[in-house]
């Protein structure tokens, strides 16, 4: 039953201590997926929706149909029940959902039913989620134009930052000269010069791209210089004894070695990019998610503004899930 022929014949095969035993993780049972605290709160929200609404009778804009909110609830619930989690992740996901549903419950009962905050800028959940249905064309257009800028800007910034940062980190003379300068520049928050960049660039597209690029570039550039300095010495020595030249060394050893760290930083980078972009959009754009929120606020349509804010949150979450998937596929190791 031996895997190795040659080595094990002479008794030099793998010893018992060398072999690695894997423990498979337990899956969550269907009973546990359905009977739990979050699902109890889920039912409470539905039950609350049947209570009489003071919001509908007291507020000018009235209360929209529960359908849109209901669809959102069902989508969240479907993802929760059908997820493919192991036991240890299950508890955390449970807790997250408890928070989310509690928030929805308080929102539904406090605003839609009891109208405890009778102000125009505290919209009911029914109305907020109805915006997604009613105004989906404008929201998707904003999403499209923002997403193009983010994906384009972040990738461009990362490619430049990683290649240049690795090169600078690798050559001591360059590092000593460039690092202090980069350190000084990277501490300036990009939000400070956003309005200035919007002003001087010919088109808003160029301006946003520059803003997104700058918001990511300096930090990642500095990170890459640091990462290069901290690559495991023995890995570098192993490559050095193969007589590798500088360029192959950077592209075949240093950058692959730092890949997990680069991907780990991607969620933070995305959040930063989104923050600066939406800020830029609020200053001078004619489309985009930030623009949507700004216009809604200008016209005192707080329901739309809240919907826009929630939508941005959902987009970021989906992007992060997407990054996690990429990481699982391409980074199968951690140092």
């Amino acid at each position: 039953m031996s895997i190795s022929e040659k080595a094990s014949d002479s008794g030099l095969g793998l010893t018992e201590t060398e072999k690695i035993v894997k423990i498979s993780k337990k899956k969550v049972s269907w009973f546990k997926r359905i009977v739990n605290v979050p699902n109890f709160i889920f039912l409470l929200i539905w039950a609350a929706s049947f209570l009489p609404s003071r919001y509908a009778s007291e507020m000018k804009m009235g209360l929209m149909d529960f359908k849109a909110f209901g669809v959102v609830l069902i989508l969240v619930e479907a993802v929760f029940i059908l997820r493919n989690g192991s036991e240890d992740k299950y508890r955390a996901q449970n807790d997250i959902l408890v928070f989310l549903y509690l928030f929805f419950l308080i929102w539904e009962v406090g605003v839609s039913r009891l109208n405890l905050l009778p102000y125009a800028f505290v919209p009911a959940p029914e109305n907020v989620f109805y915006v997604f249905y009613e105004d989906y064309a404008a929201i998707l257009e904003g999403f499209r134009s923002s997403l193009i800028l983010i994906v384009f800007g972040v990738s461009l910034a990362l490619v430049f930052a990683v290649i240049l940062g690795t090169l600078v980190g690798w050559v001591p003379r360059l590092r000593n000269a460039v690092y202090p300068i980069v350190k000084a520049i990277s501490t300036v928050p990009p939000l400070i010069y956003t309005s200035y960049v919007v002003l001087i660039m010919p088109t808003f597209f160029m301006a946003s791209l520059t803003v997104v690029f700058l918001s990511i570039f300096w930090g990642s550039f500095m990170g890459s210089i640091n990462n290069t300095a901290f690559v495991e010495k023995k890995v570098i020595n192993s490559a050095k004894v193969l007589n590798m030249k500088t360029i192959p060394m950077l592209f075949k050893i240093i950058i692959p070695f730092n890949m997990p760290r680069i991907l780990n930083n991607l969620p933070i980078n995305l959040a930063t990019a989104l923050m600066t972009l939406t800020a830029a959009e609020m200053i001078g754009a004619s489309s985009g998610m930030g623009y949507y929120v700004r216009v809604s606020l200008t016209y005192a349509n707080y329901t739309k503004a809240v919907a826009g804010i929630i939508f941005i949150g959902i987009v970021v979450t989906i992007l992060n899930i997407f990054i996690e998937l990429i990481k699982k596929k391409f980074v199968t190791w951690q140092y």
Binding site: E232, K234, V235, N237, S238, A239, V241, L242, N243, M244, P248, K252, I253, P256, F257, M259, V331, T332, W333, Y335
Partner: peptide
């Protein structure tokens, strides 16, 4: 050729890739 104490393999490559990569690079 050198064998170091530990952690000297390229962690993102499979065992096979570690060997073939070193072979190709050293004979470049």
């Amino acid at each position: 050729a050198v064998v170091f104490q530990n952690y000297s393999l390229f962690p993102w490559m499979t065992a096979k890739k570690n060997v073939s990569f070193a072979l190709r690079e050293s004979k470049r």
